[in-house]
Design a protein around this nucleic acid. Structure first.
Lengths: 223, 223
DNA sequence: TGCCTTTGTTAATGCTCTGTTAATACCCAG
DNA sequence: CTGGGTATTAACAGAGCATTAACAAAGGCA
């Protein structure tokens, strides 16, 4: 689970990072609203822990802006005890939960887990490509409106292609995408999965580039 | 909106009653766990505000008892600042939210509204889904007019699905819904309950999404 | 209270779907 | 024609889920 921690107090941030790391969260820490926005646009996160007292922008207005930009991931607000009105407007701005400073780490953990569970699967992110509609979090795929049932590995493979459309992906790259770096298979598993994908999605979806790898869709310029 | 306030401190209770009345809530105030249980069995309430420091019974154990009796209405816990562990177990016992004393009335109001919004539709009203009529407050279920007898856990499971229609619920999420945060069972109890539900409601009601969890009804059309 | 019924959990077993391997057939370039 | 790369297919092992039975616990009733 990937958490974005937005907190300008270094001491609190360090403590939180350590505590969350212990629970096998992957934590990215930023200290400003600007950096937080950048981080959101660059990578994938499952939740945000947001301190309201940021140096460059008010947390509440930042949150409102994010919500307007269709970021619908769960947000847990941290705030100082004496700013109740701010907290209320925090909830109104679209926070899913909030916590008063100083807080107990166990409590933060409990609320965070609860948030993540509540929000799992609510993501509406749908990728589209040539009549193909893909909802990764639901393992749901339709081809021209017809539902297609994909297994996990097939979905992972398809996503690897959708993340790099019209680019040639080597078998080696695909192997890393499916199994993680280093830890791989020792056979033609990738080939088999590609074959199965082609059976389910039509053989023209994935093209072979002999000697190099595979590509989703047609080449850019036949020059 | 009908609120049951369980609080033994007369001063706090009076303040809360006045504040909530200002917001057009109807508040019934009791000072003991025993009286609270009576009140719940006698009348209808939309939410409970529960102080943990009651004279006759621990608030957490009271809450657990209520949850076992299928009172699934939203509960907001009030508790003293220095008892964090108690608060955590309060969440585990099935509280929907909690607030530290001393609290701000505006904050209480905001959380209460948020709670009621979240739970709207799950109380009082009869829930209908594909020939299924469910009355949560009376634990009554009919399928195409035919009464179906559900056990407590089965009802809790069905409600978890009805509260999240057409969404995939992981076994972990369902476990939390039935047993509270963290503290769960160590076997395939969820699977067995799902199997039993399917026997009583028909096997097409709950679908399996392999590797992710279960879902009530058909998937949304992503198109 | 003690018996009996209902409910909840555990554990064992079987079944279906997946992922990987391996063997074989195919294809294109040199 | 030949060899390296790719496609196809079948078989196997394992995971995940369904099913069932047995046991424990809780609640009703006399």
């Amino acid at each position: 689970m990937h958490i974005l921690l937005v907190e300008d107090d270094a001491q609190i941030a360090d403590g939180l990072c350590a505590a969350l790391a212990l629970e096998n969260f992957t934590v990215d820490h930023v200290a400003t609203a600007t950096a937080a926005e950048q981080a959101l646009s660059l990578g994938h996160f499952d939740a945000v822990i947001l301190d309201l007292g940021l140096p460059d922008e008010d947390g509440v207005s930042w949150l409102e802006r994010m919500r307007r930009q269709q970021h619908d991931l769960p947000v847990l607000i941290l705030s100082a005890r004496d700013s109740v009105a701010q907290k209320v407007s925090g909830l109104q701005a679209g926070a899913d939960d909030y916590l008063l400073k100083p807080f107990d780490l166990r409590e933060l953990s409990a609320r965070l887990h609860s948030l993540l569970r509540r929000s799992s699967g609510r993501s509406t992110h749908v990728i589209e490509h040539e009549g193909l509609m893909v909802n990764p979090s639901h393992l749901e795929v339709t081809l021209h409106g017809v539902p297609v049932n994909l297994a996990r590995r097939e979905m992972a493979l398809l996503l690897a292609f959708l993340n790099n459309p019209k680019r040639i992906l080597s078998a080696e790259y695909l192997q890393d995408a499916l199994y993680g770096l280093g830890d791989g298979v020792e056979s033609n598993a990738i080939n088999v999965h590609i074959y199965n994908l082609r059976r389910k999605l039509g053989s023209s979806m994935i093209q072979t580039v002999r000697g190099l790898g595979f590509r989703l869709g047609v080449p850019d310029e036949p020059a």
